[in-house]
Write a protein that binds this DNA or RNA. Structure first.
Lengths: 209, 209
DNA sequence: TTCTTCGTGGTACGACCGTACCATGTTGGT
DNA sequence: ACCAACATGGTACGGTCGTACCACGAAGAA
């Protein structure tokens, strides 16, 4: 046999090529030949590792979410050894905003997949709705924990506020993507609601940015 | 000359055919032949009234937003002769949720256009970002007016709350579209925030439903 | 009435796309 | 050393898509 290549690694390289070219020209415009050229391999190779385009797209979606989940995890770890719930929640909510190239690509492609999944049943069958649910649970837990510790408005409904924050972050991200709004404006809105939910301990005053 | 047909009316019929078929199979999957078949005309006719596909899509987008703006206007008019600011704001915010076939199609296609516009400069040049801006202005004005009348929390920032409400409505709408959330859950979240912003006059108690 | 312009149909062309097929070098196992 | 499984390349095929071309009837203008 020839070089005995690591299939999973190859698939990853090709999937990242897909993500790059789709981030540039849009998911609807990417073909197998584009992915092959971007990855620097032949069209046949892409066929070899992903037999069909549908499988390539599905794998690409999985790869995208995995990579971004890891990135968010790194952001949270970098936020300090034992950050408060407010800081953690803020990092979580702001992480999805398209502020740099990688998050921009993620937001664009994730939205594309989501919209595609409405009319494409193969995409709809894919459980990439788990991810937002996980974020929602984490955020709700953060708020509830802060309430018990006296760090958040006890009258707020944790689940509702978590849903609201993530919903706002999603649309604000898209607004940035289409150039309707700047990142500063989006973060200001989100911080305003974080301030509303996470009340500082008495006497500490309101948190300034 | 032959029957001397009304071009604008014809274009409208074809545009509605585009909207229907795109709402069914997705905007990415619609071709000129599909539109022609849906409209019950020949492919040549579609070419005749819209020389290129790009022009057809642009016109379809315009038609879509026009029709929906009219629908929202009708909803507001049906809300009573002189509705309070809270009722008006609620109608405005809930109008965009995909609860029936027409609003579902609108939400799906508008989102598709928005995502497309990120990588397609012809779509990006189209000023279909005016519409959300107009809704934002209207909503902010409604809140500010309610504040002056003592019907809303005077400490709230009208513009920020308007942006927040519309942002939440957009993502919640998409959540409904992909089947992640039901319409009841989405409206409950939105009404919660409307309750937070629009405070009932003293002694009247909190508004139920 | 005749002519010219408009509306409409059918069809062909060139390009691209996803997929399938055929070929070939390469290397680990025996 | 030979063979079989594997990795890779090139290329062709069928289909579809947007667009262009050609033709013809129909009706207002002269």
């Amino acid at each position: 046999m020839p070089k005995r290549v690591d299939h999973e690694e190859r698939r990853g390289q090709i999937a990242e090529a897909l993500v790059r070219v789709a981030g540039r020209r849009g998911l609807h415009a990417v073909g197998m030949r584009d992915v092959a050229a971007e990855a620097g391999v032949s069209l046949r190779l892409v066929q070899y590792y992903f037999e069909t385009k549908e499988k390539l797209l599905l794998y690409g979606l999985q790869h995208l979410t995995d990579r971004f989940t890891a990135r968010v995890g790194a952001r949270l770890a970098a936020a300090g050894p034992a950050p408060g719930p407010r800081a953690t929640a803020e990092a979580l909510v702001l992480a999805s905003l398209p502020t740099d190239e990688e998050s921009r690509t993620f937001h664009l492609l994730y939205s594309s997949y989501a919209i595609l999944s409405v009319t494409d049943e193969a995409l709809a069958a894919q459980p990439f709705i788990d991810n937002p649910d996980a974020a929602e649970d984490a955020l709700a837990g953060l708020i509830a924990g802060a309430q018990e510790a006296g760090l958040a408005d006890p009258g707020a409904d944790a689940r509702t506020e978590a849903v609201s924050l993530l919903a706002m972050a999603a649309t604000l991200g898209t607004s940035i993507l289409v150039g309707q709004r700047g990142p500063e404006s989006a973060t200001a809105v989100l911080r305003h609601h974080l301030d509303r939910i996470f009340t500082a301990p008495e006497g500490t005053g309101t948190r300034e940015v």
